[in-house]
Amino acid sequence: MTPASDEGGSDGHRRSGSHARERDNTPRSFWKELPLLVVIALVLALLIKTFLVQAFSIPSASMENTLQIGDRVLVDKLTPWFGAEPQRGEVVVFHDPDNWLRGEPTPKPNAVQTVLSWIGLMPSADEKDLIKRVIGVGGDTIECNGTGPLKVNGKPLDDSYIYAGNTPCSSDNQGGQFKVTVPKGKIWVMGDHRQNSLDSRYHQNDKNHGFVPVGNVVGRAVVIAWPPERWSTLPVPDTFDQPGIGTAASALPGALGLAGAVPLVLWRRRRTTSRGTGAPAAADGGAATTDDTRVSGGSTAR
């Protein structure tokens, strides 16, 4: 016969365990969860800024009217990871190649601004980036005579996208008149506001002779995201696709095509092997389961 005290003790243990389980299943307070949610959000923001897309604000006029002061653009940082390089006609953000932004004032952020800029939620005071249009890539010959037209590989460009009233070339002798051949691994960039852009033309005496190393390119600006009434994509002007200007193939389609082809080839080989040995198809694996335009952006481009 079991003593009453043992039964009571056993019941007490059961009740205690039940209460413990109930406490374990009680939802945690929102305020206790909030710090974790904030940390996760900040980590995701940092990863997106670093590897996928970053916002840049436009503080100057060198890309008008394509980009206006106060516009915020989204820059694709993903495709360069697949080997894609800048193409003619694209608007790109790039790190200052050789003191192009010399003399530009640098704001002094407070501690909160420093943290927010680090995760890409505010402009960074330390990032010295610019935004321009790619006119030529490695191997291209680019020239300006008089007021234009601007020529790439002997083909005149229809510069209808440049600032109204500007001429495609500047008639000054400080850089506006030139003929250059772009080295491999470099690009030649110009602002759409041709008479208000200190671009490749005016840096031909720097260590890169005005060319921008491809490795300095942060990514391609693809969308004007702010203000809402300015929302639009940033396509390549048709003039860069004219016959004879040359075609610079992007590495991205090839990379994605290769990635997609590998599993398809393996699947076909396994099916062929299964048929050759008389095995049923299911044996494959069972069930299917300006002035230079600096940018700030989370940075600023000029």
Rank of each mutant, 00 (worst) to 15 (best):
G8A: 14
H13Q: 14
H13I: 14
S18L: 15
N25T: 15
P27Y: 11
F30C: 12
W31I: 03
A45S: 08
T50G: 05
I58A: 03
Q68I: 08
G70M: 12
L74F: 13
V92S: 02
V93Q: 02
D96P: 04
P97D: 02
R102Y: 11
I119M: 08
L121G: 10
A125S: 11
D126K: 04
L130D: 12
L130V: 12
K132F: 03
I135L: 02
G139R: 01
N153K: 10
S160W: 15
S160L: 14
A164P: 11
P168Q: 07
Q177F: 02
V180K: 01
V180M: 08
K186I: 05
K186E: 02
I187P: 00
M190W: 00
M190Y: 05
S197C: 02
D199G: 03
N205T: 12
K207Q: 08
N208R: 04
V217A: 04
I224A: 06
I224T: 04
E229F: 13
R230V: 06
S232G: 15
S232H: 15
T233G: 07
P237Q: 12
D238K: 12
T239W: 08
F240C: 02
P243V: 10
T247Y: 01
A249K: 10
A249R: 01
A249V: 09
A249Q: 07
S250L: 07
L252K: 04
G257K: 04
G257P: 08
G260Q: 10
P263V: 10
L264Y: 06
R268G: 02
S274V: 14
V295W: 09
S296I: 14
T300E: 13
R302V: 03
